[in-house]
Each structure stands twice: as structure tokens, then as C-alpha cells.
Design a protein around this nucleic acid. Structure first.
Lengths: 343, 343
DNA sequence: GTGAAAGCGCTAACAC
DNA sequence: GTGTTAGCGCTTTCAC
């Protein structure tokens, strides 16, 4: 501690273990990796003892250098502080750890993910799971470095290397509940956008689901509000809804975060949910239960999706790429509410 | 593509670059690392061109192997899907990336963190930031592998390698607001616990702050509820509060998550916040604004703390270890509420 | 200002 | 069933 530890004492290496156990370093390797060659039980025990005694821990860098792969797995999300992506990250971390993989978390808050994929691939990650839509350059980088880039929970599904919730079906179920169970005729859509000014954005499957469900019921699709994918966006949507769409009696929010803000904003504007306006949403995040009006929401099976995404990174072709949602019925739709309401 | 790519084509290495640029591999190294030796401008350009042309990317494993360190930084949290830890993780990721470090995220959902520290140190991480209290064995592992283990946002501050919000001061401010501004005399504490049955847990500084503030105001400290650190816990606390502490007119919740459940539960129990019970809490998480009653909460400066924690991992002794909170005043305390209330 | 070369700790042929 | 050994891609000392 006196000098600025100029050169840290070397870690205990596989050779130290071999020496103490009285075997060759190869045998230590076979024991540590359970292969690729068999080891006699007695020898194995000696090695294990030596490892224990020395507190030996394999150097992941050396291993990666030779194998060309690591036990690292990249995860790119727009922003982990968003509860949906937080839930996604937690599910992926659990799924990764179940496969003895470590998660490297990267946020794409600003700009493209190509530099992130580049960095990650420099770490020889087994693959990258992205919840941010990769721009063409990012895809090119992944291809060039031969790193599987698995899209997870993106609104515009691809056929290859992607896992997504059934946005379309979930949205239809959430809208159908409003129409069939509660009899609403004017159902607005409140959806997010990443490019507020862009007009040629591909249509989100949740929007498609909302539209088709209304059309099939013979209802109009004139009420559509686009805001940020956040509770603040939902708050803004509430203001818009009361001012520009006064006749609306129900709304489908494309995410719980939006719904949380929407429901709070509606309440503040004197249009309580579900009394004045019924709301359903999409995600099934834990916080939905504690919204100003507990949210009825299409629940996404993140744990299963995460396992599928990790498996896909590891080279397993998943049985299914689209995961059905389950409508969690609470109160924001008008169900089970006592007192003044339109149930 | 026909065979199962038995042996992936070797990546482009530093030698390829050297060959193309017509220099030695050492020079490539000097260019890539900006040192440790100077390189002529013309040579540098040639090298850079070759790198560009070949799409060369340094192999992090090889670099780590020789330097004995990586640009990886470990972060251990109990559960990223908890909004507080999600916010913490996002702040740490940003702070890490600002220092060109990559975050390896590990969750300690079950059991001790020693195995995680062990794994992380095998990856030669520059350090580990933990928001889960390390058990003695974890500390020993970190010591043995000479990995700095920085505690972040732990309720029981240490003197070394730790960064924390001013739990004590923040709690006092939140309680003081209830007492001095709103005149409450019976202020309950709703706090979490990791070991529901343990009785010898060290006292959380938030509890100490709550107690001292009340004592100095000449008030009683008889109302204390311990639940899980979650919104579900807050919901349970609401039930307990109405049944076992009917005289209470205000409560300080030790976390926003608890407060969110508490406020929702109180509302459901017909004791609206802040009308019937005023509430303040601790954290300042984004979601607090959208609680059933927008939360007045002691805001924690996570971004600054994250920068300090990352700096500490990197060997900088922080100017400060304790970070003051800022009371964000909204409505749950009774401020700015029109209509029936006890403002 | 540049090059040659010695390993970092580990894996996996290959030899015995 | 075990040992020997040749690198993996990179950094850095040391010569020039």
C-alpha cells in the first residue's frame, strides 16, 4: 500500500494449480472444462483440491482469446430506466445466467447502435440482443463480425433472428374488451413514436390491431394520438384527448407507460378513469397495478421471450418467434368498479 | 455456408493491418492506443487507412490478457426491474460509457453476491459497483482478486469505497415537511426490510432520520411498519395502517416503490391521500409523479452518484461520499391540493 | 520513429 | 489417462 502498487502480484494461474496438484496443466484444463478428455477420479480430486487451496479462478480473457468466443452476451435497450425495458433486461439477465452467460448492458439513448455492436463484438460476445431497432449499418457490423444480432420486442418483426410479443393480437384483445364487454363505440388509440415529425413510419402492429378490431366491429378509427413513448407522453395525450376528442369514451394505449400518464392526466382533467373514459393498454408491467386506475393490460410473457432470445443467440432456432399476450383485467377498463362508473 | 462453418474465418488482426500499411505490428499498436511511443503523422495515416479498409477491430480479450485489466465494469443490483435500481443502472451505464467502460449487469435476486464477484473478477473487470450489500465472503473474494468493490446506495454506509444518498438528512426533510408545513402530529414510518423476521437488523438511516425529526419536534415514534421493499409491500402497509394505526394522519415511506403501493392502498381503503393521510417518501424516481397521488419525495442525485462510483472504481477518491437529496414537492403531502384536504 | 520479439493464461491437438 | 507444446492477438521493452 505504500507504493502505488506498481505491478500487482500475478494471479494464481493454471500452472500453479498443476504444480501443486502434481499434474500437467492440460489435466487442469480438462478438469476445469469437464473435457474434452477424461480424467481419472483420483486426479480430478487432487486438482480440485489444489484449485480450492489456491483460490484459482480461470482467466476469461485467455480463454476467449483462444476459443474466439466469450461467455458474454450483449443487450441493447433504449433506456433501462424505462420500466418496460427494465423488466426486459431483468428477464434477459435471468435467462442469460441460466445459461452461464454474463450480460453486457448498453443503452442506445442517442443515435445508432452500430458503435455499440462494434464494441460488443470486440468483446467476442456470443451474440447481441437488441430492443432498439438496429439501423442498416448496425446490421452490417454484426454481419461482418459474425455476431448474431437478435431483435427482441421490436414493433416491426423480421423473419430472421427476432422474438416479439403478439402485438397485433394483444392490441385486438385489448380493444375488443373495450368494445364487446363495455360497449364503447368511440375508442381512441394513444401510441408512441420515435420520430415525432416523421410521417412515413411503418405502421406499428398495435395500431393495425386497434384499427382492424374497430373496423370489424363497424366502428370508426378517427381518434389517433401520437406522443412520446413515456408517461409524460401519456399525460400530454390526456390533454389532447379532452380537447380534440371530447366524444371519446375509451382509449387503447400502446404501452403501460403511456397509459399510466394518460390515466393520471385524465383524472387531473376531471375525467376519471374508468368513470369518464375507459382505458386498456399493452405490456403488463408490474407498475400497471398501481396506476391511478389499475390498468387492464395485455401482458407480455417477457421471461419466456427472454429465454427464446438467449437460446437464439446460442444458435437454437426457437419453436416460436411470436408470443401471445394475456389480457390482465383490472379496473381501468371499467371492470369490477363499484360506485359511479359506466360499467 | 454449406458446411456448419467448422472454423470461422479468422478475424482481421493487427498483423493484417501492419502488413497492409507496410509497418510493424508495434506501430499499429502505438496508433491504436495513442502511445506509448510517438508515431509520425504520415505513418499514422497509413495505419488508420489500413484499419479502415480492413474493418479492423482490436480484440478485447487479447488486450485484457496482457494488461490484466479490461474495460468492463461490474454492476450488481438486487433486481433491475425495480424502478429504483433501474434508474441506478441507467445512471451507472451512462457514467461508465462516458469513461469508455462497458457494464456487465448481474442481479443478486437470490443469495449472496460472492459468486457474482468471482465471475466478474474472472473477466478482469476494472471494478464492481454493488447496490446489494456484500456479505463478508463477497468482500473477501473482491479483496483476494484485488477488484475494487464499491458500494453504491447502500443503507448502511461504510467509510471506504462507498457512495450513498444522504438517507438521514433526506428522511428528516421529508418528515419535517409533514410536521412543519402541514402540522401533522402522528407520523408513521413505512420502511422495507430484507429479512422480515430478523430483529437485530442495523437501523436504516432513514428510520433514524424519521425518529430524530419526530423526537426533536416533541412527537411520538410509535407508528412503525415494516414490509417488503416493493409496491406490494406498500399495499400491505396501507392495510396495516388503517387497521392498527387508525390515528395516524401522515406517513413517511422509505422508498417511492413502497409509497406508490401505500398511496394506492390507502385510496382503495377509502382513506385518500393526501385528504385523509398525507405521505412523503424517498427516492425521487420518475414514476413518483404518476402515483395515485403524485408523490412528494426526497430526490436522490443518481447521475452524480453514478459518476462518483465509477470514478472510485477507477481509483479516484471522491470528494464526497454522501449526496444530499432534494425534496420534490408534489401533492401526496397535501401541498397544492384544491378541494377537500387538510392542506 | 520504427521493428523484433517475449510472453500474458489458456485450449486442444498430438504423442505417449 | 496424462504430458508436451504451439499458438490465440496483443502490449511493450529493447534495440536500432
Amino acid at each position: 500500500m505504500s507504493s502505488s502498487d506498481a505491478r500487482p502480484p500475478r494471479d494464481v494461474t493454471r500452472n500453479d494449480v498443476a504444480r501443486l496438484a502434481g499434474v500437467s496443466s492440460a489435466v487442469v484444463s480438462y478438469v476445469v472444462n469437464n473435457g474434452p478428455r477424461p480424467v481419472a477420479e483420483a486426479t480430478r480430486t487432487k486438482v480440485l483440491d489444489a484449485i480450492e487451496k489456491l483460490g484459482y479462478r480461470p482467466n476469461a480473457a485467455a480463454r476467449s482469446l483462444i476459443t474466439g468466443r466469450s461467455d458474454l452476451l450483449g443487450l441493447i435497450v433504449p433506456d433501462v430506466s424505462n420500466p418496460y425495458f427494465a423488466a426486459l433486461a431483468q428477464a434477459v439477465e435471468v435467462a442469460a445466467r441460466a445459461k452461464s452467460m454474463n450480460l453486457v448492458l448498453a443503452q442506445s439513448t442517442t443515435g445508432g447502435i452500430a458503435p455499440l455492436v462494434e464494441t460488443l463484438s470486440g468483446h467476442l460476445v456470443a451474440g447481441v440482443i437488441t430492443a432498439t431497432a438496429p439501423e442498416p449499418e448496425a446490421v452490417a457490423v454484426a454481419l461482418r463480425s459474425r455476431v448474431p444480432l437478435v431483435r427482441m420486442s421490436l414493433a416491426t418483426p423480421t423473419e430472421r433472428l427476432a422474438i416479439w410479443p403478439d402485438y397485433y393480437g394483444g392490441a385486438r384483445a385489448a380493444v375488443r374488451h373495450l368494445v364487446e364487454v363495455h360497449g364503447h363505440r368511440e375508442v381512441a388509440l394513444v401510441i408512441g413514436t420515435d420520430h415525432p415529425e416523421a410521417t412515413d413510419e411503418p405502421m406499428d402492429d398495435r395500431e393495425r390491431g386497434w384499427r382492424d378490431e374497430l373496423v370489424e366491429a363497424g366502428l370508426g378509427t378517427g381518434h389517433r394520438i401520437r406522443v412520446h413513448w413515456s408517461s409524460a407522453g401519456g399525460l400530454a395525450a390526456a390533454a389532447l384527448l379532452v380537447s380534440a376528442h371530447p366524444g371519446v369514451t375509451a382509449a387503447f394505449a400502446a404501452s403501460d407507460q403511456i397509459a399510466i400518464g394518460l390515466v393520471a392526466g385524465l383524472q387531473r382533467a376531471g375525467r376519471p378513469v374508468p368513470g369518464a373514459v375507459a382505458v386498456t393498454s399493452f405490456d403488463g408491467s408490474p407498475g400497471a397495478e398501481f396506476a391511478v386506475s389499475p390498468l387492464t393490460t395485455a401482458g407480455v410473457p417477457l421471461a419466456r421471450m427472454a429465454r427464446a432470445a438467449v437460446a437464439e443467440v446460442l444458435g437454437t432456432v426457437p419453436k416460436s418467434r411470436s408470443y401471445p399476450t394475456t389480457l390482465v383485467v383490472r379496473e381501468s377498463c371499467g371492470c369490477g368498479v363499484t360506485g359511479p362508473g359506466n360499467g
